[in-house]
Amino acid sequence: MSATADQRDIGGPAQPLLIARNLAKHFAARGASKSARVRAVDDVSFTLFKGETLGIVGESGCGKSTLARLLLHLIQRDSGELIFDGEPVGAPRGITVAALRRNVQMVFQDSYSSLNPRMPVQDSVAFGPFVHGRRKSEARRAARDMLVKVGLNPDLFGPRYPHELSGGQKQRVNIARALAIEPRMVILDEAVSALDKSVEAQVLNLLRALKQQFNLTYLFISHDLNVVRYISDRVLVMYLGRVVELGPSEAIFIQPLHPYTRALLGSQPSMDPAHRIEQPPVTGDPPSPIDPPSGCRFHPRCPFAEPVCAQRSPELGAWRERDSHVAACHMLDPASGHSKAMQ
């Protein structure tokens, strides 16, 4: 089925499903001085190809969740451009935000707040189809079908309330809700992070199976590198609102280019008591996104930092090809003046 043409597919398989160009979102910092801005997302560009899974990794405050909400227009972007299957979103000649939301859905991190506590879960799932004009009974039927697809018995679990479900079951319901209006793309914002490992594995398997069946494109946001490596075709690494590295999953994990990516990978516990990590790859905490460091935002923590890193912001290379692997680091740019720059 994945090979059959999707009528909703406008530009053909070669056309990216989503292009983000120079997205930016700044918030006024609360409690700080008036001029202070939280640069939550700053000049982020990437391409999401049809049928792929793009992983977004980064630590807290790197802007990955803000980015997800920008893509769905849950937050208004300050600047930048969003193009869905060749059509600019919200532009006069493009598609509307409503149309975008028919095509893109989101699964939130499982927590007490992800499902309406006063609504049986089958009604939560049915809400999407209902909003999109289906009759209540039809929406209910669609919801029950979708519950089956995510591995929940609708007779047993449909009438239950969220607090009567385990974390994994709730997350299955959340997935069912996102898929109920048949989107083409799903944003998974830390969708498995709150789950126990044994349950996380179940949900990851389910996500992979559903992707096949519904011909989906995933944007998978997580702080867990192992999970991102497993599920993603390509990975985008964010640090303080900027993209620092983008490339095919294996390339990033085997040969990371950016010092931050290397530090992130080196911080992963070894899983082997005989080879424990003796020295932390980087010291200190990620700085606050309020008035972030100048130039390369990683330079205060970077072991290779040189004056140029504080002065100029490095460019992320060209990333239009699926297999291109790029990083925003002066050491990769021979013209940057960094002493370790590749010649």
């Binding site: 909400r69 769905l72 849950l74 409503a98 939301r101 028919r102 893109v104 859905q105 989101m106 939130f108 991190q109 927590s111 707040s113 992800s114 499902l115 309406n116 506590p117 006063r118 609504m119 939560s124 809400f127 999407g128 909003v131 999109h132 959340n174 809700r177 996102a178 209006i181």
Partner: peptide, 29 residues
């Protein structure tokens, strides 16, 4: 401020629908 409201917005529901189906039930208590 809870996620399920955001999820409802993401499905394309209008404000009135969200208030009616998702807010009222939780506020009435």
């Amino acid at each position: 401020s809870l996620d399920f409201i955001e999820a409802a917005r993401a499905t394309g529901a209008g404000t009135l629908t969200i208030v009616r189906y998702h807010v009222l039930g939780n506020v009435l208590g």
